[in-house]
Amino acid sequence: MDCRLGCGACCIAPSISSPIPGMPNGKPANTRCIQLNDDNLCRLFGLDSRPKVCLDFAPDIDVCGDSDPQAMTNLIYLEKVT
């Protein structure tokens, strides 16, 4: 599966414990990453400064669902149960 451009759920719903440029302590769950632009696209995409956890995330229909709202719901659920 390819990312749905402009979704941004993976940059909002989960917590990230590793440093992110502009967010040295990572980010809490349900918090918009500072690197997510107004179009919900990552400013770090393709750069070496992108956190490993972000590099390792691969979109999957079981996580991302059929829509951006479904992706957000699924990722919020996964964050709560892990």
Rank of each mutant, 00 (worst) to 15 (best):
G22C: 01
T31F: 04
Q70D: 04
I34S: 13
Y77W: 10
L75D: 04
P59C: 14
E79P: 00
N74W: 03
P21V: 05
A71K: 02
F57Q: 05
R32M: 13
L44G: 09
L78I: 08
P59S: 11
R32Q: 13
L78P: 00
N30L: 07
D39E: 13
D39K: 14
L55P: 00
C10I: 12
N40M: 06
S67P: 03
K80L: 03
Q70K: 12
R50I: 04
P19N: 09
P24Q: 06
I34M: 07
G6A: 12
S18N: 09
V63I: 15
S18V: 15
G46M: 03
Q70W: 00
C3V: 03
D66Y: 03
S15F: 12
D66P: 00
I76Y: 00
D68S: 10
P28Q: 14
I34V: 15
S15L: 07
P19Y: 09
D2T: 14
I61G: 01
G8Q: 08
M72Y: 01
L55D: 13
F57T: 08
N40E: 07
G46L: 05
G6W: 11
T82N: 15
P69N: 03
D39C: 00
K80Q: 13
I34C: 06
A29H: 08
C33E: 05
N25L: 11
C64Q: 12
T31C: 04
T73F: 01
P14T: 12
R43A: 13
S18Y: 03
F45Y: 15
C10V: 06
I76G: 00
Q35E: 08
V63P: 00
G26N: 08
P24R: 06
C3S: 03
C10A: 11
A58D: 07
S18G: 05
I76L: 05
A71G: 02
C11G: 11
G22H: 08
D60W: 07
P28S: 14
L36N: 13
G22K: 07
M72N: 01
P69Y: 03
F45G: 02
Q70L: 02
P14D: 12
C64I: 04
V81R: 14
D39G: 03
K80E: 14
